[in-house]
Write a protein that binds this DNA or RNA. Structure first.
Lengths: 271, 271
DNA sequence: TACGTTCGGTTGTCCGGACAATCCGAGGCA
DNA sequence: TGCCTCGGATTGTCCGGACAACCGAACGTA
């Protein structure tokens, strides 16, 4: 069991460019798994397939070879191969069709949906995000936060208010309330990175969030803060975030300049 | 194999209300599977567990009995039980912890994320949605739609403009462009139900969507149409929808009255 | 030609087993 | 008392096999 299988995956092109050639037009896809690696086999395979799709080695609409043969070539069992494929189906990259095969989904899509972090989003977009911490203190929870965090109204919470900027221009006003003993927050760190990244660093595994996105006109004070005219349209977002134990880790109530920001994400249908 | 196992699932309450009692406090959960049913066994189990959680029979934080014992009690194999549990983990209802067990996630969460349909959402909320079809014709695609539908600018598309109302009040202005030969659209049907429901009825399986949510001030014409003042904040949403073959089935560019509507959904972290 | 049937191919479901990785608590040791 | 080790419990990964359900295409028949 020391060898590392390294095979070419035959892929058929439905388009059929060469009519006289056999249906299966092998594309030299170098797949291999390392049994000595601590990384699960199905995960290794899944990652390699995803990379192949992302790099265009597997063109949209093309069929993957059948599971049984693929398993044989890689020296894996069919359940393991299925697990790898299933992971990509869940991600929306592949589609299974009984009696037909598994094919790469067309699409220009393919993108994060993710529990998005404004900081990470901006950074990924090449904007250099900056943060000004306006308030960081322990105060009484307001009504919305108390309901979201499931504590009594007026109970102590950690209150955080930030202004997020790119290129020196304000983009959003972020107001968070957190359980008081969840995390040690420091203004210095908060100006250097995002809140979610700090949470992950503290060993908190984010799991899901419930959020509401709306819009309203800016009040004079909000306009002043964000550099807009009073009455300008603002995007509002309220979000309650849960970690993997179901604990509420954060309630946020945010304002975004509609002229400079929009939410962008992908939805998958849950059958 | 003709019997229908019907067992009680022991559930331990971490809270431990009765200290002197054994740790496992069995809750009379009636689980059963019907091997003669065409419904897959894992799906039957999955649905029953979900129902139990939804009805509060399985309280948040409580542990499910271990997989092996549960499999034995139900007369199923462990992989089948795992498949059922995995489905609920994917839905965000359960959390697995190696060495500990599987527990019901705390939370007030639990809600649709879904590829939401405005019509269905309103109907589910008890609003009685109504629709006025303003335009339904074949025209040249505009720039955004052409890019989204991957056709040449100016190519023919089916254009649909609707006004959505509840209680006689406008809520949203919906503008869709579709591939011309995808679906036979009739104004009458469109006034009675939603677009997505018509698509599903025509055998189209919706798969995923990419959308952008922003805000802007209403133009005089838009304000007139929606019953707002010019300059009032409007929510905007652009959406490209794909079916399970990866085909683009719709490009929509919609306007919502921010005073009467907000987007509400749940996000799951994809690890 | 048009239609129905059959058949091969592929994924869907299910089983039973084996071992590894991880967590928590109990017990031992200093 | 406090720390460390160990072991039981539970999920994670992987295997090999079996049969069912479904799709498309080739084939045969009217």
């Amino acid at each position: 069991m020391s060898g590392q299988p390294n095979v070419s995956l035959p892929v058929s092109r439905p388009g059929g460019y060469a009519p006289h050639v056999a249906k299966k037009e092998p594309v030299d896809l170098q797949l291999s798994v390392d049994r000595n690696s601590p990384v699960p086999l199905y995960f290794q395979l899944s990652q390699q397939l995803e990379a192949a799709i992302e790099r265009g080695k597997l063109s949209p609409g093309s069929l993957l070879g059948n599971e049984i043969e693929l398993a044989g070539r890689l020296g894996l069992s069919r359940p393991t191969v299925r697990q790898a494929i299933q992971a990509l189906v869940d991600k929306g990259l592949l589609v299974r069709r009984r009696g037909i095969g598994t094919q790469v989904v067309h699409s220009q899509i393919r993108r994060p949906l993710e529990l998005s972090s404004l900081y990470d989003d901006l950074e990924a977009a090449g904007q250099r995000p900056a943060t000004r911490v306006l308030r960081l203190e322990t105060t009484a929870a307001d009504a919305e936060a108390a309901a979201a965090l499931a504590v009594a109204e007026g109970a102590e919470v950690r209150l955080l208010e930030r202004l997020r900027l790119t290129h020196g221009e304000p983009v959003a006003f972020l107001r968070n309330q957190l359980p008081p003993d969840l995390l040690r927050l420091e203004a210095g760190e908060l100006e250097r990175t995002g809140l979610y990244r700090l949470m992950r660093g503290a060993g908190i595994t984010l799991h899901s969030a419930r959020q509401t996105i709306g819009a309203r006109a800016a009040s004079p004070a909000e306009a002043e803060l964000l550099g807009e005219e009073p009455g300008a349209p603002l995007l509002t977002m309220q979000r309650v975030t849960f970690d993997d134990t179901g604990r509420v880790v954060e309630y946020g109530s945010h304002l975004y300049r509609a002229s400079r920001y929009a939410f962008d994400f992908q939805l998958l249908v849950r059958s």
